[in-house]
Design a protein around this nucleic acid. Structure first.
Lengths: 404, 404
DNA sequence: TGATTAATTCGTTCTGTAACCGAACTTATT
DNA sequence: AATAAGTTCGGTTACAGAACGAATTAATCA
């Protein structure tokens, strides 16, 4: 309400930047046509952006009638962000430049000592990567951390994250900002996965999207109407507690949710044990199933049956256009095919179900996406919390190759 | 992207209007303090608004040091909107002025012939009411229709609305616009109910809110992060199809959802019949329960048990701060108390559950809310689809009395 | 007690500036 | 000759900010 000085330029500057980011090398005349702003204004804004070092001349057009045009492009290395996917067993760290190119991805086991050790580990990884790529620290503007649990931006704590030792008691946000020396955003890892798939994966152009990560536990990230859904206490997507599959009124369901006890790793191994007496890992169950083991096949069928019900519940509540499966179990084609067949038997409206395209890196890419969006917002645009930039997909293709 | 001419004034004008709407009679100096805009600018904007007939002088301040100030107020009758709640059995029509005062509420049985007859009926009701209140047609700017089903803004059709005859085949939006002669918005009735409770009822100031309407059928409206959730095909909240309570893989569940078959009217009467052999109505079951009838009490217990599970599912997916119960069954205190007791047994995080405060009029009030927001947006502000105005609550209190 | 002065707030006028637009014009190219 | 790119110039709009007059109450003083 208060303090609204001269916002107009910010708006225009932002759309000019968006045109340049997406249009690759582009002339000022083209920007003018794209944005609807006058040529004169575009020249002014581009001059400003060039002086501040965000864009640069890259060449001239040729081969058409009329005067040649000078083309402008992003200065790719004008700023960098750190993207982190912090899991219970693995940490992934990547650096992204302004043009959405990912450098220097690194993945190592999470420091088992937890707490501050993890934070130092991540900072070390990030700075090593920066040094290797000769990226000066000053150019790193932001870090986005994906982690399990419900990060509370008010207190900087992460709630409901039993997987990571020592995080429940500390102000994780502050600790990261101190260790990294830049602004830090913390977000639930599955939420980032939806963003990642929405940007570069299965969910491109889809505004109503659900991502279900199924592995040791279950979690879901929801994008509705183009916005990430976080819920009142940032616990949206904790679908492990859906009353599906096991008795929700059993005392145990208050600790480990009914749905989680029906579909996650432990459920599958237990189910196999009760059928055969043998205690084997989940990958082994998939292997056995591939060799025709009836018990293993039954386990897959039953797991898929509950998963389909879970998807039906999500679809009934939120009506996503597509549901993307991820996580070590959710990514298996054996599960996907079964769930696809079952969903139409228990839910009347069409829901597309696909496996994630980005695999285990979905959250990391999502972190990059949200970070780039945030960076563009703070640097060039209105500081609206939900102002979305459309990141370029062209360079993104290159990115995929770089990273894989 | 294109066509962004002179948007600044719109922004300022909008916040000035917001200050006047909420601040009641207010001086230009106060508006300046509230908005942060200079006194000079406020004078200019207010002068413009006055010339266009949206605000007017109402008096002067007195009793304090310093010069007296001229106060300005909304011209209440500068514009009106029609709010309609179209149900399977009843139609409610109301007229609202710019100051959010509701006039001339009328409720009559829905024309059983369906289709165009209903539309004509609503138009007649609206125009009668306008005539009675001497409201000139020209001042009616917008109509908001709440109806069961999933209105598709692209085609103007309403899908999934079996309750209302003849609506599946026609372009309802066009028909309404023709009959009423104003712009029309169609929205799901339960979605409007959340908005209503969010504006004036149980959900005031709560950005993450779920509304469950339980009666002949079940439906849910979801507000997450301050935005209404509609889903990909505007079918979000069709929670009747959650795989809870009955076998979701039964063929019947594809027609009438498992959850609906577990909690709605028919489920309760069937349950009572299977226990006693007697076929009675739902109100009778509540009466019998009040008199100690064990079968009736068992029916209530079981219904509440399933309802609690449904709420747990919604809470697990969307994490609302509060869940509001509505509909003929959901509003009963016998159900509320049972569900409140049961929810903490099957869901680990706190969820507040309350009965709706606006009763059967929630959707109508929601229609007024969304219409007023839209009107303020188109008249005074940026035409952003999600630009929310904060409607005044002060006058709203008066409204409640007017309507009841 | 009344008159005078001080303090305070309201609202306007005037000047200045940033951010645009549009037309006219120059320059470069096919 | 036609066309497209880019600049220059003039003009408008939406603001800010300072200065100032107007209106009112509070305090002071004769």
């Amino acid at each position: 309400m208060s303090d609204v000085p001269r916002i107009s330029r910010q708006f225009s500057q932002r759309s000019v930047m968006e045109a340049i980011v997406q249009g690759g090398p582009i002339s000022r005349a083209s920007i003018s046509k794209l944005t609807g702003l006058s040529k004169q204004t575009i020249s002014e804004i581009v001059r400003g952006l060039e002086q501040e070092g965000w864009v640069q001349e890259t060449g001239r057009t040729s081969g058409h009638v009329g005067r040649t045009a000078v083309t402008y492009e992003l200065v790719h290395d004008a700023a960098y962000i750190i993207a982190v996917d912090l899991g219970g067993t693995k940490v992934r760290v990547a650096l992204t430049d302004l043009a959405c190119q990912i450098f220097a991805e690194a993945a190592t086991p999470t420091d088992p000592r937890g707490g501050q050790f993890i934070i130092d580990q991540i900072a070390a990884l990030a700075f090593q990567a920066a040094a290797r790529e000769r990226i000066p620290r000053k150019k790193i503007r932001l870090a986005v951390i994906g982690a399990p649990g419900a990060p509370d931006p008010a207190t900087g704590r992460i709630l409901l994250a039993p997987n990571i030792a020592g995080f429940d008691a500390m102000n994780v946000l502050d600790a990261f900002e101190k260790a990294l020396g830049v602004a830090v955003m913390i977000e639930n890892d599955v939420n980032l996965a939806v963003l990642g798939e929405n940007w570069l994966g299965q969910g491109q152009g889809i505004d109503n999207l659900a991502y279900i990560a199924l592995g040791t536990g279950v979690g879901s990230g929801l994008m509705l109407g183009g916005h990430l859904v976080r819920g009142a206490t940032h616990a949206a997507g904790e679908i492990g507690f859906m009353p599906i599959g096991a008795d929700p009124f059993a005392a145990e369901s208050l600790r480990t949710g009914a749905f989680e006890r029906a579909v996650a790793t432990h459920a599958m191994t237990e189910r196999y044990r009760s059928l055969t007496g043998a205690q084997v890992t989940v990958p082994a169950i998939f292997e056995n199933a591939a060799m025709g083991d009836k018990a293993a096949l039954a386990v897959l069928d039953e797991t898929a049956r509950y998963l389909a019900q879970g998807i039906a519940a999500i679809a009934a509540v939120a009506n996503p256009e597509k549901v993307i499966l991820g996580g070590s179990i959710g990514l298996r084609p054996e599960i996907l095919s079964r769930v696809k067949a079952l969903i139409s038997l228990c839910f009347p409206y069409p829901v597309t179900i696909e496996a994630g395209e980005l695999g285990a890196r979905a959250a990391l890419i999502g972190a990059a996406a949200i970070g780039l969006g945030q960076l563009h917002n703070t640097l060039f645009g209105v500081d609206a919390p939900d102002g979305r930039i459309s990141l370029p997909t062209a360079q993104a293709a290159a990115l995929k190759e770089v990273v894989l």
